[in-house]
Simulated scan of single mutants.
Amino acid sequence: MRAWVFHKAGPPSEVLKFDTNWPKPEPSGTKILVEVHAVSLNPIGWKAMSTPPISWGQKKPCVPEADVSGIVAGGELEGTGFSIGDEVFGIVPYDTIMKSGQGVLAEYTLVESKLLAKKPTNLSHAEAASFPLAGLTAWQALVIQGGLKEGDGKKVLINGGSGGVGAYAVQIAKAHGAHVTTTSSPSSNSLVSTLGADEIVDYHSVDLPKYLAEKHGDAKFDLVFDTVGVKTMWEGSEGFLKPEGQYVDVAGPHMESFLTALSAGLDIAGRLYKPKWLGGIKRKYTLMMLHGTQRSPELQEAASLLAKGTIKPIVDQVFAFDDVHKAYERSMSGRAKGKVVVKVE
Rank of each mutant, 00 (worst) to 15 (best):
M1Y: 13
W4G: 10
K8S: 15
K8P: 13
G10E: 06
E14M: 09
T20Y: 12
P27F: 08
S28Y: 13
T30S: 11
L33Q: 12
V34P: 14
V34H: 07
V36T: 07
A38H: 00
V39F: 01
S40F: 07
N42P: 06
N42A: 08
N42E: 05
G45V: 01
W46H: 13
A48D: 13
A48N: 10
S50V: 08
I54D: 08
W56A: 07
K60Y: 02
C62K: 05
V63L: 00
V72H: 01
E78Q: 13
S83A: 15
I84A: 14
E87F: 00
G90L: 03
D95P: 10
K99H: 04
Q102L: 12
L110C: 02
E112P: 09
E112S: 12
P120E: 04
A126Y: 03
E127M: 05
P132T: 04
A134F: 03
L136D: 10
A138Q: 03
L142H: 02
I144Q: 15
D152M: 13
V156A: 01
S162E: 10
G164R: 00
V180S: 03
T182A: 05
T183Y: 09
S184A: 14
S190T: 12
A197W: 02
D202Q: 03
S205T: 10
V206Y: 01
D207W: 00
L212R: 07
H216E: 09
D218Q: 13
A219K: 15
F221Y: 11
F225E: 09
G236M: 05
S237Y: 05
K242C: 00
G245N: 06
Y247A: 08
G252N: 07
L259A: 13
L262R: 15
I268P: 13
A269C: 12
K282F: 06
R283F: 10
T293K: 12
E298W: 11
L305T: 01
T310N: 04
V315G: 00
V315R: 05
Q317V: 11
H325Q: 02
K326H: 10
R330Q: 05
S333W: 07
K337I: 03
V342F: 00
